[in-house]
Design a protein around this nucleic acid. Structure first.
Length: 527
RNA sequence: GGGCCGCUAGCUCAAUUGGCAGAGCAACUGACUCUUAAUCAGUUGGUUACAGGUUCGAGUCCUGUGCGGCUCACCA
């Protein structure tokens, strides 16, 4: 009931709802969706299945365009409406999402897009007859459609399908994002990545590049006789890195399980078993905060090579990454965040101690314990949290003062033993291990060391880590008895390497946030 | 977890000092047989993220909540 004193009332308010028009209480989206649902019902009423089981394509859009480039004259001589439709050349059957439609009375130009490209359609009423009216009435932007017809060039030279028949392959019940600006809302781009992909070419480019990077990396390793393996994700105990794991529960065993934080300890078991060159490109889970450089699940390459050391893995890194860049991008010079980065080897190599001294003024080797190092840091007005051990303090100095400066590819070499419980000591220097990290664009992209294969020393290192853990370091390595047994069977001298795939992709696609290179980045649950 | 910023139509964005919530795209109706972000005429479409508060009056000011972005801390 309308109250005349507050609601003036509208002419159509008491009349029947107009077909296709939203009812007053509907939200706009529901109105748009109902229109599409009505179109779907009209298609069904005409005997058209709006979701047919199959549609046989003759070509991809890219193949059709390629054919036309070499078989059609570069320009149409003049506007000769109708001519192409009479010619009846080779028939192409193509499909894709309807992304543009411009209708002008008895003819319509439209574009469809598949994963290989987009192509223009020319629809004519005198050719399609009833199908033409059906197109105008019941097809919408966003629908997946199929078309069949010969190719021709328009007056402006654009390769176009002269459509002789058209088919609805999947009716879209929701409207697509705006066709020109695309989808800009970052949250929707991440939560509904398919909308990002269908409307933003750059998103498609980034993820296609990611795929090429990974396959190039596989080819590189495969061609050097590395064996790709898969190790468990679900573990009784998570080790191989300094990180807190995700915890889950196995019902049948009634046991706590952990998602892996590294593949290291299992890959080394395989080296013990005689696989001298192994690698895994796998998802890693770390129960930590998110940032532009961190996602709780990410992808890492780890590879292990028997009878190699960290000098060999260093040579491999500065050979492999430029190789991948060359293969995927056609160049070893990339732009990242406004900086020009040249991946051409050789890369700069600096001993970690020297790098910290250079950038912070502190020589870590002059301060043997946490207290004296902390005191030195205080003198340089550098704050440290009270519970940080010596290794953590060095890591702190490194990541704060050195890492952000390392734009061009740089290896930092020879890390403190305390930070590297799985790495082999540097001969003649009891405080250091044979380890390097590679930095590009201010990001750590690789971590590598000569693997510790002395079971007794490994046991001792685990014990030291346990002490750190007891002192409150939740990320200290847990002793892994089963791994120690493996080492006791003898592991050859081995060089190990880890490369963060996501960060490599960021670098090669000029993406400054890791969320731009992960299809479905971690997001808070939304009700 | 802290700090800063953001959230307006399906999408992209406006809204002056606190004073009638608007445009473009999409949709709908109509014109148009070489357009291409088609064009032209008209129409529809709003819980201004949510909950409170101040005020004659709140998209705008205040408080809280949610989600997101950046950043710091932590990590790779």
């Amino acid at each position: 009931m309308s109250d005349p004193s507050t609601a003036p009332g509208r002419a159509d308010q008491d009349g029947p709802p107009r077909p296709g028009a939203g009812q007053a209480q509907d939200r706009p989206l529901e109105g748009l969706m109902r229109q599409r649902a009505e179109k779907l019902e009209r298609l069904r009423a005409r005997g058209v299945d709006p979701y047919p089981n199959r549609y046989k394509l003759s070509h991809t859009i890219a193949q059709a365009l390629e054919w036309a480039e070499s078989n059609l004259p570069a320009t149409a001589p003049e506007a000769t409406p109708g001519a192409a439709h009479e010619e009846g050349g080779a028939l192409f059957t193509l499909a894709g999402r309807l992304i543009f439609s411009r209708h002008m009375g008895r003819a319509t130009f439209a574009h469809i897009q598949d994963s290989t490209g987009r192509i223009q359609l020319h629809l004519r009423r005198d050719v399609l007859e009833d199908e033409y009216e059906g197109y105008l009435k019941d097809y919408d932007l966003g629908d997946i459609i199929g078309v069949s017809g010969p190719l021709f060039r328009t007056r402006t030279g654009e390769i176009t399908v002269a459509v002789k028949s058209i088919a609805m392959l999947s009716k879209a019940l929701r409207p697509p994002p705006e066709k020109w600006h695309g989808l800009a809302d970052v949250e929707i781009r991440y939560r509904q990545r398919y909308l990002d992909l269908m409307s933003n070419p750059d998103a498609r480019r980034i993820f296609a590049t990611r795929s090429k990077i990974v396959s190039s990396m596989r080819r590189y390793l495969d061609s050097r006789d590395f064996l790709e393996v898969e190790t468990p994700v679900l573990l009784p105990q998570a080790g191989g890195a300094a990180a807190r794991p995700f915890v889950t529960h196995h019902n049948a065993l009634d046991e706590e399980m952990y998602l892996r934080i590294a593949t290291e300890l299992y890959l080394k078991r395989l080296v013990v078993g005689g696989f001298d060159k192994v690698y895994e490109i796998g998802r890693i889970f770390r129960n930590e905060g998110t940032s532009t450089k961190h996602n709780p699940e990410f992808t890492m390459l780890e590879c292990y090579q028997a009878y190699a050391d960290y000098n060999d893995t260093m040579a491999m890194v500065e050979d492999m990454l430029p190789h991948i860049a060359q293969e995927v991008l056609g160049t070893t010079r990339v732009t990242y965040g406004g900086s020009e980065i040249d991946l051409t080897p050789p890369w700069r190599k600096i001993v970690l101690r020297d790098a910290i001294l250079e950038h912070s003024g502190i020589d870590i080797m002059q301060y043997a314990d946490a207290d004296s190092l902390k005191a030195a840091m205080r003198e340089h007005h550098i704050t440290a949290t009270p519970d940080e051990g010596w290794g953590k303090l060095v890591d702190h100095l490194q990541s704060e003062y050195v890492e952000p400066k390392l734009m061009q590819p740089t290896f930092l070499i020879d890390y403190p033993k305390e930070l590297s419980p799985l790495a082999k000591g540097k001969p003649g220097d009891p405080k250091l291990v044979e380890r390097f990290e590679a930095f590009i664009g201010g990001m750590e992209v690789a971590n590598s060391f000569t693997e510790l294969n002395d079971p007794a020393e490994q046991r001792e290192r685990f014990t030291q880590q346990s002490r750190l853990r007891e002192a409150g370091d939740e990320e200290a390595e847990l002793p892994d008895e089963d791994f120690l047994v493996a080492l006791e069977h003898g592991m050859p001298p081995t060089g190990g390497l880890g490369i963060g795939i996501d960060r490599l992709v960021m670098l090669l696609t000029d993406s400054t946030s890791i969320r731009e290179v992960i299809l479905f980045p971690q997001m808070r649950r939304r009700e």
